[in-house]
Design a protein around this nucleic acid. Structure first.
Length: 191
DNA sequence: TATTGGATCGCC
DNA sequence: GCGATCCAATAG
């Protein structure tokens, strides 16, 4: 059964959403077949004051989805070859999002189990695996079509906070412990 | 209009 | 440690 998370879940403080997304399942439907992975690693980007955020210089063509209503996907293209998936949070007009950094693929999603550690342990890799491209920029994740997040009732784990990856340029904002992982999960990315 | 550098990854 | 490879954001 499809049971995508509701908009009011996303319309909460970003740090709370980033933590509560852990243990939820990202579902991608492609022509009737499914790629599904448990979210095991996230990062929060909050407001224009956050110098590590794409919104730190105000609203632009690229980041405008972050200013829109919560529960939509913000996809950006980076380093000439990778896409990254974020979910927009908080109320419309306030630019904030949670970057989905790693997934634990479900058994039903895997043709060969041997590569399961590799397919989605990083924001660029998980988008490549799920065939998420910029056509999903602005996609409404509450519709339960093609791409959404659902709750399967998992909450038996500990959350570990650490520094965000790849944002050394942002001064004191690089020191915020706004990266969240499921403690001990081996599918978390290894920078 | 030209230049720059990035919320990454995989191979050297 | 570094090259791949695009494009939005800046500067001029």
């Amino acid at each position: 059964m499809k049971k995508p998370l509701l908009r009011k879940f996303y319309q909460q403080p970003t740090l709370k959403v980033a933590k509560e997304l852990l243990g939820k399942y990202l579902v991608r439907e492609i022509n009737g077949s499914f790629l599904i992975g448990k979210i095991v690693e996230t990062e929060a980007y909050v407001g224009e004051n956050d110098l590590a955020s794409h919104a730190s210089k105000g609203k632009t063509l690229r980041n405008q989805v972050m200013y829109g209503p919560p529960g939509h996907a913000y996809i950006y293209f980076i380093y000439g070859m990778y896409f990254c998936l974020n979910v927009v949070t908080e109320k419309e007009g306030f630019p904030a999002a949670v970057l989905i950094r790693a997934l634990e693929p479900t058994d039903e999603s895997l043709g060969s189990k041997a590569r399961s550690l590799e397919v989605a342990s990083g924001p660029g890799k998980l988008c490549r695996w799920m065939k998420i491209t910029k056509e999903f920029n602005g996609w409404d994740l509450t519709k339960g079509q093609k791409l959404w997040v659902e709750d399967r009732g998992e909450s038996d784990f500990e959350i570990e906070a650490s520094l965000r990856i790849g944002v050394d340029y942002s001064g004191k904002w690089a020191k915020k412990p706004w990266r969240f992982c499921i403690k001990g999960n081996e599918f978390v990315s290894k920078p």
